[in-house]
Design a protein around this nucleic acid. Structure first.
Lengths: 121, 121
DNA sequence: TCGCTGTTTAACATATTTGTTAATTAACCG
DNA sequence: CGGTTAATTAACAAATATGTTAAACAGCGA
């Protein structure tokens, strides 16, 4: 058991973990997936789309907003939500930093060899 | 409020959401990050690296295993854990499927993305 | 102003998650 | 066999998350 550095090697690991946690709920994941496809969607439309009450969706949106995954824009009485691009980029970057594990159909050993070969990133 | 299809448009959304949930815990995220860098690591070594007890790490590994994110190999009295490549690929593909949201601004990254450009959408 | 629509906050019950320590299982070695 | 190491499972407390309904807030328009 070491200090907290041991659980947080790279910069911003805690933040991306919180973003993954936000994406971990099926409803929130579906919300993000839908926003990424449809662009801006008002809260009310999302409530109709998912099988929980409007207050529940509202709080899910709050969680996503707090995690930095969505942006909110006020237009009249509606709140229009959309995906925050930077957050998606952060997640994509993380997957790319470990791309040796998913590029092609690599075995675990191949992945490690690939990691050795381009150790930059 | 529609039926459950509305919260699960694409195939396997529930599964990837569970994987995000597994990655959402800071310790589990750090475990995955470390396994992706180091390859196979026995449970005991992980326990030493993170600031919680061995049983706690063991259960985190169980969660990761159940979510399909890690593989377990028994060697003598040790259990060697490693990242399951397919799960990483699934997450990477999800980010790529929404790359319109993040590919805009990083030029060094654009080259990497260009390599994947032929694959989907 | 009043009522209507859109959305969030409050209050609360229930379920899940996470951590701890103690006990258990399994393999190794004298 | 008996002791030691490696890891998991059991039992339980505390914290967090999720859903509901009711109330509150805010903008729109007659």
């Amino acid at each position: 058991m070491l200090n907290s550095d041991a659980t947080d090697h790279a910069t911003g690991n805690a933040e991306i973990a919180r973003q993954f946690a936000a994406l971990g709920d099926p409803i929130r994941f579906a919300i993000i997936d839908r926003l990424a496809r449809e662009g801006e969607v008002p809260a009310g439309a999302l409530s109709e789309g998912f099988a929980v009450s409007a207050p529940a969706v509202s709080r899910h949106l709050g969680v996503l907003h707090k995690a930095g995954l969505v942006q909110r824009r006020v237009e009249g009485q509606r709140r229009l939500y959309s995906v925050a691009p930077e957050s998606m980029r952060r997640i994509a970057l993380w997957t790319l930093s470990h791309r040796a594990f998913w590029q092609g159909s690599l075995s675990r050993l191949d992945a490690l060899i690939a990691l050795e070969e381009h150790s930059d990133d």
